[in-house]
Design a protein around this nucleic acid. Structure first.
Lengths: 223, 223
DNA sequence: GTCTATAACACGATAGAC
DNA sequence: GTCTATCGTGTTATAGAC
């Protein structure tokens, strides 16, 4: 009769395996962590680990979920008091790097698994839809909670476009070897004002044409 | 005393392994092709294959080289008679997809190996420098052989920027599952005119500021 | 349905003999 | 340079216990 989620034995085991895997990945890296080690550390059999997770790669999806929750939480405080579009976007992207940073060591290592088009780990896969939608929702909040004035057509697609931009930032971050990701922070600090200006300029007579053409191309070619 | 390259035994063996691997990749796909199969088909031992190539992944670099030569060759005829920037760029990108297309099946499969930042297969790695430079040279030819008029600052960086754009097109192509890559062709057909317009607009008074800012950001943040 | 224990398989990679 | 034998891995299979 209680509405409180009481974890079943099964859920507990699954969660135990998940948490152990994530911890070992962070401690030793993805490749150096064997399925045998995950099972041993979690106190279960290898067969049991495979009972809950179909493959080692599948354990990576857990990190996405964890990372997305982390980011969304960090954004709450940032979006609460700020109404200016540029500041909101900058804050959200800084928080994106902040929350990613502790995992830098192994994020690059398993990044490649996300790059395979047919992989469920691809950010565009249907399996990633929940995480992706949650991420886009953050950028929708960035736009809708702001005082931004721009072309109505752009405004509709802006959340998704900003998410795409954030994926580009993450891509840069993965390749960024500067200390404390200094260059990635600089990337957002320098590109956010440019985006802000471009979005503002979109209403100008001379720009309307290119903008409409670019948007219609985008709509046509996204899956 | 002869200037003609007489292949040594070693070079012959290496070449034999390389050609066999590439053939099997195309026939069966990357993952389905085992090192044992490559060795057997080439008539050498597994150990010998590893004597010439440090890993299975290393064999992929061969495909890059082959693919780049293929593209550069296809571009010659295209760039010969055409002086207009837009048409030159469009032709080169169409040729890029044309030459990639036969390998569609397995290109997606090993694409992920290129995505790992620390991998020699990354398009930004030092090991990829020769192929990368050859690719950028094609886009330099696109610009310099054209009648394009634009901001001098942009012009200097344009070849590299166009290469980056072409990498984006390839990225889209990898994920494109439409028949005969129809959507990727549409992508270049619709984005090339946009790029052409933007590059032309860069000289306009209202645009100069954003363009300079964007370019200086790019220069600062490229490795 | 959940879980253990153990063995077996195919693969990429390596060691060491010749 | 080239080989054979072997290792460690992800994954699957088997045979059961609660």
């Amino acid at each position: 009769m209680s509405a409180v989620a009481v974890p079943t034995k099964s859920e507990q085991t699954r969660d135990l395996i998940a948490k152990t895997a994530l911890r070992l990945f962070r401690e030793r890296g993805y490749e150096a962590t064997t399925m045998r080690a995950i099972a041993t550390e979690a106190g279960v059999s290898v067969g049991n680990a495979y009972y809950y997770f179909g493959s080692k790669e599948e354990l990576i999806q857990l990190y996405y979920e964890h990372s997305q929750e982390d980011h969304a939480e960090a954004c709450e405080g940032i979006l609460d008091g700020e109404r200016e579009f540029r500041a909101r976007l900058l804050g959200v992207l800084r928080a994106r790097i902040d929350t990613l940073q502790p995992y830098k060591e192994f994020a690059g290592k398993f990044f490649k698994y996300a790059a395979e088009p047919s992989s469920p780990l691809s950010p565009f896969s249907s399996e990633s839809a929940p995480v992706r939608d949650a991420a886009i929702a953050v950028y929708r909040e960035v736009v809708e909670g702001s005082t931004l004035k721009t072309d109505a057509e752009i405004r509709a697609d802006l959340p998704e476009l900003l998410w795409l931009y954030s994926m580009g930032v993450v891509l840069y971050w993965v390749y960024d070897s500067s200390p404390d990701a200094a260059k990635t922070y600089r990337l957002v600090e320098r590109t956010v004002p440019i985006i802000d200006r471009l979005v503002g300029m979109a209403r100008l007579p001379g720009m309307r044409g290119v903008v409409r053409e670019a948007l219609s191309t985008y709509r046509d070619l996204r899956k």
